[in-house]
Structures are given as structure tokens and as C-alpha cells.
Measured scan of single mutants.
Amino acid sequence: HNLTITQGKLFFHYNPKLCLSEIHKMEEVSGTKGRQERNDIALKTNGDQASCENELLKFSYIRTSFDKILLRWEPYWPPDFRDLLGFMLFYKEAPYQNVTEFDGQDACGSNSWTVVDIDPPLRSNDPKSQNHPGWLMRGLKPWTQYAIFVKTLVTFSDERRTYGAKSDIIYVQTDATNPSVPLDPISVSNSSSQIILKWKPPSDPNGNITHYLVFWERQAEDSELFELDYCLKGLKLPSRTWSPPFESEDSQKHNQSEYEDSAGECCSCPKTDSQILKELEESSFRKTFEDYLHNVVFVPRKTSSGTGAEDPRPSRKRRSLGDVGNVTVAVPTVAAFPNTSSTSVPTSPEEHRPFEKVVNKESLVISGLRHFTGYRIELQACNQDTPEERCSVAAYVSARTMPEAKADDIVGPVTHEIFENNVVHLMWQEPKEPNGLIVLYEVSYRRYGDEELHLCVSRKHFALERGCRLRGLSPGNYSVRIRATSLAGNGSWTEPTYFYVTDYLDVPSNIA
């Protein structure tokens, strides 16, 4: 807008934040220059609390790290170098490059900038070799853009010569660093050979998330399962459950009422301010606690030095998902009996873990797994792929695949051998790939016309006998059925096997 004052003059007093240069501009645009008398524009009460600059400061050096910015700028000295009290560095987070010096300023003089007072450097006698002032900004957020400017702080001049310097606002972004852990990993099994893994992005990506790394490792069953005799009275049979499938998407929606109208769909109840505040506090606490764990609990591995020492970490090797089922080394339970199943799973520490690289999504279907087997899954978020990966501390989750139908069934015939004193040795093959492992066998036998009897055969007993022995049988026709019990439950009964026990007292003698 054009402003013209045809008559009258300007009068400025007691404006401590208004620089004289701005008042002189007002004289020019209003056409009143030359009308004012000496005392109409006070030299001592206008701009006496402001830094009124008329020179431009330029930054000469900028260096960044993930949490620091090192700045240096060209030296500046007023005509009387004693008038320079120091520099004021202003900075704040700036997602967009549209910041002005006066953003967030209120009537009390406060604003949204963080201000650092910096002492002037030592003055050199040689004007050509003056030290460049600077400042190291610490405690910054990774991968965050900051708006920065600097200006001088000078003393009051009796001659009211307006001098000083100020830089333009520059924008500097800190470097990326390792992201925080992925949030809320959930693993479920939808079949006997697959596990579905879902997660949420890290709360602090500290860069642009480029991919996720998912490692999985087959877990050995508890050692007590191999040692305890679950045929003993009072000892509860062990059981394991597989990871249940995901709930429906509708039930997972946030901010939804727990109660549904019987007449149909209901609208979600909005969260109160107290609920939102509580969630923010919980989120802040979780982030602080995660940072504490990362800094205190997890110790970084030592990389190899120039002395030739090897990095103890196993090298990563990509495998196809079809090879995942046989990740671990199978060892027989008892070496003397080769027909026992290889369900003991000690994992070799030198073995390469299978892994998958996930790009542009937060889910993965891990296939080719062994049925009813526990897996430990390790999830890392990465925001750099080359020249070397920059990934987060791992988040861990466990899951067990679903049982395989008929995996616990005894394959092959049940054979028998009759000894003296009416002892019958029953023999059968253990299931080759049971659900988890076989903890015991149930032997059901009966003599024709009598009630059915049951015998429990422990895992250890089966390994020693290759089956079991029935003792003290009365003469007669017998039928026997056997079924295995694994961590997933009972298998199917075998087809009945028949044998006849004679009275050993009636056996004919070869003595003449």
C-alpha cells in the first residue's frame, strides 16, 4: 500500500525493539523526510534493546553428524571492536523451508527459537588472519532439518551509529543413524509349514526405512522333555500350542467401542483428552525405555581390526524358502538304536541362519518350516543398504507352526516275539517326523474274553527296548493296539495285532 503524509511529521519514542533503520525507511515511504526535528525521533529510546544489523554474515563451514552440527561463519568486528559482546545463534526444527525470524513471537518477546549466546573469538592483530567464530550444536535429532541463523550482539553506541551483522536463515539436516526397533511384532501360524509375521514401523526411523531383515531359527525343545518319565503317576503330560491366527481386521481397528449394538453396526467412541494424553505418555515412556535398553543392555560386537582377528559373527547367506525346513542338525536320541526319531534339535552355532529381506511392506510369510516346531524370529529395521547396512537392534518374537495331521501315527506293522515265561516283546517304529517329539506310547492289549488293559511306555523305555515287553501273560489269544502321544496330543491307534500265548508248562520236552 502507498502511504503519503502531505502535512505533519513523524514522532517515535520509547520503541526499544524498533531499529532506527526501520524508522528511516518509514520517513522515505511516507514522504516526511526532512520535516522531523532532532528530538522527534529519539536516538536513545528507539532500538536500544534490539540488534540492528546492516551487514550480512556468511557461514564459512558446515559439518553434520547424526546428532551434531558444527558451524563456522566469517569474522565480524565493528569499528570499535570492544562493542562486540558476542553472537546469538538461533535454531529450531523446520520440516519445511518457510521459516521466518519472527515465527511464534508474542507480545512478551518470546519466540519459538532456541538461542545460544556465543563469546567472540580472540581478536588477531592481523586483519587478514582473524579467527572464524563458530559453535557445535549438540543433542539434535537424527535425520531432522533445522533452520539456523546467527547475528551479532553489540553494545549501545553513544554516537548512535547503527552497526551489526546478521546471516540469512539456512537449512541444515542432520545425518541418518540406526533406527529404533520395529514396533509390535506379531507372529502367527496359518499352516503346519508357515508363519505369518506382521509389525509396525519404528517410532524413530532416523532416516528413510529402506528394508527390513527377518531372521528365523528353529528352537530346540526343553531338555526336561527328553529326561522326564511322563508315565509316572502324578506327572502331567506336557503340551505345546501353536500360535493362533490373526483376529479379523475389524476387531483390530483402534479407537473402536468394545460393545456392539445388537441391531447392527455401531460407531466408534472418540477417545477423551485424558485417554489420548495417557497414550502419549505411555508411548514416550516406551521410547525412553527402549533407548535405555539399547544403550545399557546391548553391547556392540567388536569388529575385526587390522591384526587379522576374525569377526566372530557368522556370515549372512541367503537361502531359498524351500530350504528352511531342514535348518537344524538332527541327532538321534540314543545312538545305539537307529530307529528312534531325530527330534532332539541342538543347533550348531556355526550354522548360517536363513533370512529374508523385506522391502516396502511390514509383513512376511515364512514358508518351508517344520510342522509343530518353535521358531525364534528376529526382526531388524534398516535405513541404508549400501555401502553397508545400517540397521536397528533386533526385536524378537516366537511362534510355533501348526501340527501336521497323521504325523504322530505309527507307520509300519507292530511285530512281536514270544519268549519263555510268557513274555512277549512288542516292537514298532517311532514316527519319523512327529509333531514336536514323542513323549510316550500307549499300549492297549486284551486277552479274548477279558477286559482291555493299558500300559504306558516312556520315551526312554522305548529307546532301550525298541518297544516294550509284556510279562506274566496268561495263555490265550491276544490283540494289541499302540498309539503315540506327542507334544500336540495323541496320534491314531494302530491296526490290531494278534498273537497267541501258550502255557509254557505244557511245552513238550526233548528229553527222552
Rank of each mutant, 00 (worst) to 15 (best):
N477F: 09
P245T: 10
T333G: 15
G436L: 11
R313F: 07
P387W: 11
A395K: 04
K271Y: 04
F372H: 05
L505D: 05
A220R: 05
S284L: 11
A399P: 03
F285E: 02
S392Y: 00
C382R: 00
S304K: 15
H254M: 12
S305K: 15
T401Q: 01
A335G: 14
K271D: 02
S341Q: 12
L464S: 11
K317M: 10
R316V: 12
K302P: 09
E388Y: 15
G234T: 09
Q252I: 09
E356D: 06
R301A: 02
S320A: 15
Q252A: 12
Y396M: 15
C266S: 11
N422L: 10
L321V: 14
E388R: 08
R286C: 03
E465W: 15
K253V: 02
R390H: 07
L277P: 04
V358R: 12
P346I: 13
R471I: 05
Y498R: 12
T502D: 07
Q252D: 14
T307L: 07
E356C: 08
G374F: 13
S363R: 12
D409V: 04
E310V: 07
L369G: 08
D323G: 04
E224R: 09
T272I: 04
L487G: 03
H371M: 02
E217L: 02
T502V: 06
N435D: 02
K287W: 10
E388H: 15
T401P: 09
T401L: 07
F298I: 03
R483G: 02
S257L: 12
N435Y: 09
E310S: 12
E433V: 12
R370K: 13
V423M: 06
E465M: 12
R447Q: 14
E362Q: 08
L440C: 04
W242H: 13
N383C: 13
E404A: 04
H461A: 10
L213F: 10
N208F: 12
T307V: 07
D408G: 03
P338H: 09
P403H: 04
R481Q: 12
D506G: 14
L293P: 01
T272L: 05
V424K: 02
G472V: 12
R313T: 14
R447L: 13
H254E: 08
T401K: 00
P205A: 08
V296M: 10
E378K: 07
T272R: 04
R218Q: 15
R400N: 03
I482S: 02
T288C: 15
E417H: 03
F215T: 05
F246N: 14
L364P: 01
G467L: 07
K278V: 04
R218G: 12
L440Q: 06
E247M: 09
Y292T: 02
A399W: 02
V331F: 13
D250R: 06
S479E: 15
R400W: 03
P338F: 13
R483C: 02
I377Q: 03
F499T: 01
V331L: 11
V397D: 07
Y396A: 05
S304Y: 08
E389Q: 13
D323Q: 15
W216K: 14
N435W: 02
C456L: 02
G436P: 15
E282C: 01
D311L: 13
V334S: 11
P434Q: 04
C456K: 01
E442R: 01
K271M: 07
R483H: 11
F372P: 00
E221G: 09
I366T: 03
L225H: 07
D311H: 05
N510S: 11
D261M: 06
E224T: 08
A395T: 09
S257I: 05
W216S: 03
D503N: 12
L487A: 03
G308W: 05
S274N: 07
A399E: 04
Y498E: 12
S251W: 00
K460Y: 09
E290C: 02
P270G: 02
E282Q: 11
S341T: 07
E351D: 13
G308A: 10
P244H: 15
V214R: 00
T303R: 11
P238S: 04
R316T: 08
E388Q: 14
G322I: 12
P434N: 05
T373H: 12
E224N: 09
C267H: 06
G476W: 00
G467S: 13
T502A: 15
I276Q: 08
L487D: 12
M402V: 11
E224W: 13
G368L: 10
T415W: 01
P244W: 10
D204H: 02
N339Y: 07
F337N: 01
Q219K: 13
T340C: 05
Y500F: 09
P387S: 07
P434V: 12
D311S: 11
G308M: 15
T373V: 15
N255I: 13
H352L: 12
E362H: 15
A220L: 11
P205E: 04
S486E: 00
R313W: 07
S367I: 10
S304I: 09
T502S: 14
V439T: 09
A405D: 13
K361Q: 12
A463W: 12
E310K: 03
Y478T: 01
V324M: 07
D204A: 13
P475H: 14
G306A: 13
E260W: 03
P244K: 10
Y478S: 01
A395D: 09
P496F: 15
F499I: 11
S367Y: 04
Y445L: 04
D323R: 12
E378A: 09
E362L: 10
A394S: 09
S444H: 13
G412P: 14
T307H: 07
Y441P: 01
T347P: 08
G374W: 12
T497V: 14
E224M: 06
Q252R: 11
T210N: 11
I276E: 01
M427V: 11
D503M: 05
H211D: 02
S398E: 01
E451L: 12
L235N: 05
E247D: 05
A381F: 00
S444F: 15
E249S: 09
T241D: 09
S479V: 09
